[in-house]
Design a binder for these strands. Structure first.
Lengths: 138, 138
DNA sequence: TGATACATGCAAATAAGTTGCAGTTATGAT
DNA sequence: ATCATAACTGCAACTTATTTGCATGTATCA
């Protein structure tokens, strides 16, 4: 686990527990955003079994610290990804097989001011996902 | 109900039932995307009560015909909006009070080709929502 | 007006995520 | 080292969103 994550946890008064370390390891090893149930399954497979409730509680806490981001692909469940230490980016998901890949781009950086003028909101975040068909499913 | 919606239903072999007409009326009258439960509540208030299951079934069907779009704001439930006959647009939601307003813009129109080259996917849709604080909650 | 494919309501099931509580553990101070 | 304590975990039960099965009802077209 990167020291910066360790530091964020400590700064938040959080402990480095066995379950938490294993959950973070699963998240860090995944190449795409994963669900709570998937994390739970990988923990069991890695003989680091933690309760699914513990997974949910850690996901909420890590989001609160800004280490994790939650992404919704309209699948009826959320997916989670480590955002700390990574460049801001988005994703595309295949409508056939569900495969998700990173898109290292964001076309929204210059838009905030325009939206703030237009709406009087202060804008502090956005969610952007693309959908389509991968080469195998097309 | 616009004739074009009537026509789409007919073309899909769907019937113009009392419940369906009432559900579509609620959707057309809403100024922002609403949830299944909200639709159900408004139906009851309008003395056009239809079962919540019927609401869900109609929402799924209308999405299938492309008349409705589903939007997720990470609230644990979906919201629905008539898209047929309206300009493509996005939304911003207040993190304080949950208020949603339309953003009549889309910064993504020229991006599809670039993503397709980059990923080999064929892109056929996207979801984009903004978050922030409205003037009252700021 | 009658056949029938499509729709509905009700009850029950499923699935994601949350909460309460009693027992466990990491951590920092002694 | 060990101790006190706040944080953490597991389990069971719960809540909430959404789906499914099935028997009955109804819009539509011939």
């Amino acid at each position: 686990m990167p020291n910066s994550i360790r530091d964020s946890l400590k700064a938040g008064g959080k402990k480095l527990t066995r379950a938490r370390i294993a959950i973070l390891a699963v998240l860090e090893q995944s190449h795409f955003p994963i669900t709570a149930a998937e994390i739970h399954a990988r923990l069991i497979k890695a003989r680091a079994g933690a309760d699914l409730v513990t997974v949910y509680r850690n996901l909420a806490m890590l989001q609160g610290l800004g280490l994790l981001s939650a992404i919704g692909f309209h699948e009826g469940q959320m997916r989670y990804e480590v955002c700390h230490g990574r460049a801001h980016h988005h994703h595309i998901q295949c409508r056939g097989c569900g495969k998700i890949i990173d898109l290292m781009l964001c076309p929204l950086q210059n838009l905030t001011k325009r939206i703030e003028e237009q709406t009087q909101f202060s804008v502090d975040g956005h969610a952007l996902e693309f959908f389509g068909w991968c080469p195998q499913c097309r």
